[in-house]
């Protein structure tokens, strides 16, 4: 009893003591609450026959009908496959890229050059998807840079975005190009955290550059890498919808049509909101499972985890 009172007091006292910190957290917290938590009750329509007049709460229940509808579609297998492959390839190629880049940058000794490269590479991150896709269209056109380079090797120019085989490379390639510099920032910060005494010791012990990276730098960024990897796992299924939508055309549906674009055409254009919510909810659930299990495994195998 007495203990309770004391701990309660100490809790409030701590709050008052840390009021500035709490105030700093508050805007972000409220933002999440208002835009992420409050709208959550909207997922109810995934289980309902939504009627605009009755509103979300009073529309009749429909069970798992809308989930069933998704799997009944002849296109569902293909769009699941496309989504998974796009996510997987993004992970395999897109995830290590900024790490490698950060390690390379770290080896540069001319500070001015290093800064310049860093600034130039992280600039594309601030461009909107529409502009990036505009670049991709230009680069991939008949007289674009890609065809130009291919021409040196005697390849005839073709409109690259006409062929489904090119879509994934162009999509992931342009994403890497856009996010390389920005993604490297967090790793560069982690590298800075490595104790310079360790490097000196390694040099004295005769470690070459490669060994220094392997045994000093890499362990320093492993925790950051693990956290980033776990977070990335959750987004395997959520492709950059806007970018796909801007990049694809019917001729490359075969590889480019993903769950979100298909649901967009069916759910939003065809005003089947329940269906879109059902698929959205399903994707979120899978992402949740992926993150949780990723975190669990990481906790077991290494000491690093998100929580």
């Amino acid at each position: 009893m007495n203990g309770n009172v004391v701990s309660k007091n100490s809790f409030w006292r701590r709050c008052i003591k840390q009021r500035y910190l709490i105030m700093m957290v508050l805007p972000g917290f409220v933002l999440m609450l208002v835009f992420k938590y409050f709208p959550m009750y909207g997922i109810l329509i995934a289980f309902k026959d939504f009627n605009a007049m009755d509103g979300i709460l009073r529309s009749p229940w429909a069970g798992l009908k809308h989930f069933q509808a998704f799997f009944d579609s002849p296109m569902s297998w293909r769009i699941i496959k496309n989504t998974l492959l796009l996510g997987l390839y993004s992970l395999i190629f897109g995830f290590p890229a900024p790490i490698v880049f950060a390690l390379l940058l770290n080896e540069l000794r001319i500070t001015l050059f290093k800064r310049a490269v860093q600034t130039i590479t992280y600039f594309p991150h601030f461009l909107s998807t529409v502009i990036i896709v505009g670049f991709v269209h230009e680069f991939a056109s008949m007289d674009g840079i890609i065809n130009h380079v291919m021409g040196w090797f005697g390849v005839d120019p073709v409109p690259l975005l006409n062929f489904s085989a090119n879509f994934r490379s162009l999509f992931i390639g342009s994403s890497i190009w856009q996010e390389l510099g920005w993604g490297a920032i967090i790793y560069l910060a982690a590298i800075t955290g490595a104790d310079s005494a360790l490097y000196e010791a390694a040099v004295i012990d005769g470690a070459n550059r490669w060994q220094r990276i392997r045994y000093v730098t890499w362990p320093a960024i492993v925790p950051a890498t693990t956290v980033m990897l776990i977070m990335k796992l959750g987004s395997i299924l959520s492709t950059d919808f806007q970018k796909v939508l801007l990049m694809y055309n019917p001729n490359i549906y075969e590889t480019a049509d993903v769950i979100e674009t298909y649901v967009y055409r069916l759910g939003i254009m065809g005003t089947q909101y329940e269906y879109s919510s059902a698929v959205g909810l399903m994707l979120s659930l899978i992402a949740f499972v992926l993150i949780t299990s990723g975190n669990y495994i990481s906790k077991k195998v290494s000491e690093n985890s998100l929580w």
């Binding site: 509808a69 579609s73 296109m75 298909y262 069916l266 065809g270 269906y275």
Partner: peptide
């Protein structure tokens, strides 16, 4: 709803 589901697949 049925129309949207069938025709989106067909149109794709």
């Amino acid at each position: 709803a049925k129309k949207a589901q069938v025709m989106t697949a067909v149109k794709t």
